[in-house]
Amino acid sequence: MITLSSTGWLLMVLAALIVGLSKTALPGSTALAVGLAASALPAKESTGTLLVLLMVGDLMAIRAYRHDADWPTLRSMAPPVVAGLLVGAVYMRVADDLAMRRVIGVILLLMAALNVWQRASRRPMAPAGGWASVGYGGLAGFTTMTANAAGPVTSLYFLSRGFDVRRFLGTSAWFYLCVNITKLPLAIGAGVVNPQTLVIDLVLVPVVLLAAVLGRRLASRISRKVFDPLVLLFTVVAALNLLW
């Protein structure tokens, strides 16, 4: 049986709060929830518990931004994401956890630096399709399979596409719901999602729902001048956490 101390429950409530906010207002901050959950639960159970909470957040985000997704971007990302998932599954068999985290952390820092340089030099925004879609999509599939760290990857790609806040959040919502639905049967088969993790989820789902509602109100008040730097900040924090 999974037992949580009062500190463990506090960490999980904070993780659920961040999940809700990340889905409707602050994309890229999900990596912080991953770290909190991993501190409160064993690795496998934290992954399974968080997966269900993320799907609840995805549904809330789609309810709020269902008409704002950029479908050409999503369609162009689908094949490389699948390829990235397969490569990640193979890589997990040959590399240890520390190596995976460091590789992903370095890649995220390089991509964040590239995004800053692109904006500073006023380079054109990345188009849907092409090498940008292949690179970001493949890396998103790889990182979500190996470290649940795809949020910063897709955030950087959507920033490079020049999306406004609603288009950004709507595209992210549909992307992650599809990815997480794909991962769910695998997680159940591996025992990562099980009756014990679902009991914890039942307690935490109301926190996700409340945070998602608050996040939607927050998003309507965030300008691009604030939103974009926040996304970059969360990306760098996630990368440093992986390297640490």
Rank of each mutant, 00 (worst) to 15 (best):
G8F: 12
G189H: 07
N115I: 09
N180Q: 07
A211H: 13
V199A: 14
A211W: 13
Q118V: 04
G28Q: 05
M12W: 07
A150L: 06
T146R: 03
M125G: 06
F163W: 09
V81L: 08
L4K: 07
T197R: 02
A83M: 14
G20D: 03
R63S: 06
M12P: 12
I62V: 11
N241A: 13
T49S: 06
I62F: 00
A69K: 01
A61S: 14
I188M: 15
N241D: 10
V94W: 09
V231P: 08
V13K: 05
P127N: 03
G84K: 01
A16V: 10
Y65C: 00
L86T: 04
S121W: 11
V13A: 15
L218T: 08
W71T: 10
R224P: 05
Y136M: 11
T30L: 11
A95N: 03
D58G: 02
R93A: 12
M125C: 06
R63C: 01
V179F: 09
F234K: 09
P72T: 07
V153A: 06
G28W: 05
D97R: 15
R119H: 13
Y136E: 07
M1Y: 14
F175L: 15
T182E: 00
L177I: 10
L243Y: 12
A239K: 10
A120C: 04
W71I: 12
M77Y: 03
G191V: 09
S121I: 12
P229N: 02
T146A: 14
L36R: 10
I188Y: 09
S46R: 01
N180H: 07
T146E: 04
F227G: 04
S39Y: 07
W131T: 09
W9K: 09
G130H: 03
R93S: 12
N180S: 06
A37Q: 02
S133M: 06
L159F: 03
G88V: 08
T154A: 11
V192E: 13
A89K: 13
A15I: 12
V87D: 03
Y176I: 01
L233F: 15
S220Y: 07
D58C: 02
S172M: 14
G129H: 01
S155D: 10
L156N: 04
V213T: 12
T182W: 11
L108C: 05
V52P: 00
D70F: 05
G191S: 10
A140R: 00
L210V: 15
Q118L: 12
L218Y: 03
P124G: 10
A25D: 05
L74M: 01
R101F: 00
V203K: 08
L232D: 06
A212F: 11
F168H: 13
N115C: 10
V236W: 14
A150K: 05
L54Q: 05
I200C: 06
L32S: 09
R66S: 08
V103Q: 01
W131D: 01
L209P: 07
A40N: 01
N115L: 08
D58P: 02
Q196E: 14
L17V: 08
Y136Q: 06
G84E: 02
S6R: 15
M125Q: 07
V81E: 00
G130K: 05
T154N: 11
V199P: 00
V19T: 12
I188H: 02
F227E: 04
Y91E: 03
G162Q: 12
V231D: 04
